[in-house]
Structure formats: structure tokens, C-alpha cells
Design a protein around this nucleic acid. Sequence first.
DNA 1: TGCTAATGAGCCGTAATAAA
DNA 2: TTTATTACGGCTCATTAGCA
Lengths: 203, 203
Amino acid sequence: MSEMSGMGCSHGGRGSKRGNGSGDPDGDCGKYTRYTAEQVEVLEKVFAECPKPTFSDRQEMIHNYSILSNLEPKQIKIWFQNRRCREKQKKEANNLQSVNKKLTAANKLLKEENDRLQKQVSHLVYENEYIRQQLENISLDVTNTSCEPAVNSLQYSLRASNDPSGLLLVAKETMTEFFSKATGTLVDWVQLPGMKVLIDVFK
Amino acid sequence: MSEMSGMGCSHGGRGSKRGNGSGDPDGDCGKYTRYTAEQVEVLEKVFAECPKPTFSDRQEMIHNYSILSNLEPKQIKIWFQNRRCREKQKKEANNLQSVNKKLTAANKLLKEENDRLQKQVSHLVYENEYIRQQLENISLDVTNTSCEPAVNSLQYSLRASNDPSGLLLVAKETMTEFFSKATGTLVDWVQLPGMKVLIDVFK
DNA sequence: TGCTAATGAGCCGTAATAAA
DNA sequence: TTTATTACGGCTCATTAGCA
């Protein structure tokens, strides 16, 4: 202990103690003095390099920076303590905030992906159902033994591939047109009963 | 570590100072006294009801609770000030934290849902493929027994459904084959010269 | 050697004060 | 009044000295 020398709490350059004997309202016995901007600047600078100075570090800095000379070692110590505390709080808050941001972004992506998958599922389910239906129809046709219904199965299975919507329709129209022309103008065969069936198929 | 040695850094500071040499026990400056648990309890209770007591409110509570009688009105005032500040900070932190929790939970759910959908898609795609395969198999089976042309066209349509771009091509092939077989086996019409032309068209 | 009291650091919470 | 800062009581942890 000992040296404390000057004794008083902060005093030194600042408000220093005043006569004190007087009936000071609230104590003010020199406690609580705000450090000057210059002092804080120096302290911050040191803090950036070394947030946790040892006792000797602190001693040294008081020695090196005359602007801190009016501060007690204890004050320096406390200042660093408080500073670390503030840093920690700030860091925690920032951390949470940044985590929140990331989570929000991730959530958005996940939602979009979910949407996409949901649609894909819907589509697949539909497609699936459709193909199943074709399967059923075809097997029904086939069991009918006759060949004529087999032509129907062609129709169905062609419709089954109607997924890329439009394309087949075009094909169909093309065929219909072809037959129309074929039976009308292109060729003048004898009228065939079987041809009629074929044309109907493509209607 | 023990460098502490001499330096009176810490404590020494406290009791000492104050100019008056008198051995003041401690009270002196009257600064910084921790309130007792009982006092805090009472203060908290009031705070819960009224976080912002007026001057007269404060006066009153000092009067009503003897345990607070040794506190100055100013101290009560300050206590509420600090208390409000702490409350606010706490609330903000809690808010962030709770948002975080909710986001994390939502994230988890979304991930699970995503997984589920992903699996469902895989399953459906597989199932889809499987059914398609069956369609193809059936058509092959049927080919071996009868009605070849129609069944073949079924195969083509399957091909078409897998690759819509070749639809027209398939249609052409289908017709070609159909006519080819038709002129040969399917129907026993009289041989028609015009038919040959028709077939050429699809080549 | 092992246990316990003493010492001192750092952190937490908060009283008290100054500034905005 | 609210916000930011200074300062301190108190507790935990680690190191150490002293005693069994």
C-alpha cells in the first residue's frame, strides 16, 4: 500500500478536493470524475492493443502517458474492467443480431425451396396418377382381346404423353388434317370403311 | 503475477481519503451503499406496480415502508431510474433472444419439411419411372401376341412422353409402320395402289 | 502430501453521477 | 427523463502460504 502517495481519490488536476470540511451535500469527496476526451483516447488506443493489461502494464502506461498521470492505478484498472464489460455486451448484441440476420435469410431460402419442392411434388403426383390411369386403360383394352380397341390404347397412351401440353395436340391436328386431305383430295381411292375409324381416332 | 507488491492499487483507496484526518469509519461520503435484500424486495414490489413513481409516490413509500427510512429520497429516485434502464436493456436482450429462438425453431421445422419433401420427390420420381417401365413391358408383352402395330405405337408414345421433342418424328414412324402393316396383315382389304403413296408421305 | 485460510484478479450487478 | 460512465461491493477462480 503505501505509496498511494497523494492520497485523495482522483483529485490531481481535476476538481480536486476542495476544502471539504464544508458540508458538502453529497459527498463528492472527489469521487467520480469524467475522464477527458484525450485521456479516453489514449486509453482506447491501449485497449485496442491490449484489452487486459497487467498491473505492470498499467503502471507503465501511466508512466508513459503524462495525460494519465492524474489517474490512480486503480482507476485505470477499473476503466479497463468496464471497458471490457462494454465490449462484451456490444459483442454479444452484435452476435445475436448477425445470427438473426443469417437465420432470417436461411429461412427465406428454405421457404422458397419448400415451395419449389411442394410444386414438384404436386406435379409428380398428378403425372403419376395420370400414367397410372393410362396403364389401367391399356390393360382394360388389351383384355378385350380384339385388335380394334388396341387402337384406342394408342390414343390413350398418346394422351398420356400430353404432359408437355400442346405438342401432342399439334401432332394430332396435323394427322387429322393429313387424313382429311388424304381422303379428300390427295388420293382418290375407293372409300374404305377402316379409314373412317382411323380418322376418328385422331379427332 | 504477484507483482502487486508494493502498490496500493486497490483498496487502500476507499476508507482512506477524505481530507479530514479523523478516522471516519466509513459512512462518510455516504456514497455507494448496497441496499439490503429486504429493501430491494420492497422496491421491486413497488416497481412492478409502478415503474415510474412521482415525487409524492416516492415520499409516500418511504413513509409506508420503514425499511426504506434510512434511504434518502434522492436515492429512491435514482434507484428507479437505474431500474428502468436495466429493465429496458433486459427487455431488448430478451427480445432479440426470443426472436432468435423462434427463428431457430422455424428453421428446424423448415429443414425437416424440406427433407420430407425431398424424400417424397425421390420416391415419386422412382415410382413414376417404375410405372413407365411397366407400361413399356406391357406393350412388349402384347406385341408378342397380337395387334402389333397398335402396341408398337404405344411404345412410341412412351418414347414421346420421355422426349417431347421427338413427338412428330414418332408420329411419323407410327403412321409409317401402321400403314406398312395395314397393307400387309392387319386388314385384308383389296390391295390399293394409292396406299403406296400414303406410305411414302410418311417416310 | 493434502487441506484450508489468505490474497488478489477479473467479472457481474448496480449505486451514483454527468451528459444528452 | 434517458443514456453513458465511473466506481464499488461481492462473488468466483486461481495461486500460495501455512499447518497438520
